[in-house]
């Protein structure tokens, strides 16, 4: 029997999603599924999912709720239960503090996505095209690591480094001091 991805209880919800050719399996126990707003046993509709995500399912079991309630962010003091009530986190550190409970929620609300790819402070100031190329490589790298394809991961890492070392392309706007500072 499969164990829950989040704790070690027996899993009752099994879900396989295929996205961009990557197969992802999710196994959750009843408590964690409730926490994540998953309706058992059917698969929730995306809209319901978002609703669950924000306001929380109406029938959260007491045990699951109290376990969530114990979680809190040491940085801002927000508890997981508070977050479930109002749908907003208290600070950037909450993402870390609520750990797997939060990431399960995010993955469900974001159609199974687990990692950001797109603009980052790291590549800000470069063209959108280049940001996209970097992000694409980063995503491929993430999935290669997840699939334990280390050779491919190493190759991707090299390509990523090459791309990041290209001199940044400045925006084609009137040159200003701030722009020049940035290019250094």
């Amino acid at each position: 029997m499969k164990k829950c991805d989040l704790c070690n209880q027996p899993a009752v919800v099994h879900e396989t999603t295929v996205k961009s050719g990557i197969t992802q399996e999710i196994h959750l126990c009843a408590d964690c599924a409730n926490q994540a707003g998953v309706v058992i046993p059917g698969q929730p509709k995306p809209a319901e999912m978002l609703q669950h995500f924000v306001i929380g399912p109406g029938d959260v079991k007491k045990r699951a709720a109290s376990r969530g309630r114990r979680l809190s962010c040491t940085s801002c003091g927000m508890t997981f239960a508070e977050f479930r009530r109002n749908g907003t986190l208290g600070c950037a550190a909450c993402y870390e503090a609520f750990g797997k409970h939060l990431s399960a929620l995010i993955e469900r609300a974001q159609c199974g996505a687990t990692h950001h790819c797109g603009k980052s402070p790291h590549n800000a100031g470069t063209s959108i095209d280049r940001q996209a190329r970097i992000s694409k490589l980063m995503r491929e790298l993430n999935s290669a690591v997840a699939a334990e394809q280390y050779e491919r991961a190493a190759e991707l890492r090299d390509r990523l480094q090459d791309l990041e070392q290209e001199p940044p392309t400045l925006h084609t706007r009137s040159s200003q001091p701030s722009q020049e500072e940035r290019s250094v």
Binding site: V54, A92, Y95, Q110, H116, C117, G118, S120, A124
Partner: peptide
């Protein structure tokens, strides 16, 4: 972004108050 540090995380991207906006 040149003038202020944004809350950003390598995995989650731009960190937002509501996680439904996280990432981009």
């Amino acid at each position: 972004e040149n003038r202020v540090d944004y809350a950003y995380d390598a995995r989650w991207g731009y960190l937002t108050a509501c996680p439904t906006n996280v990432g981009t």
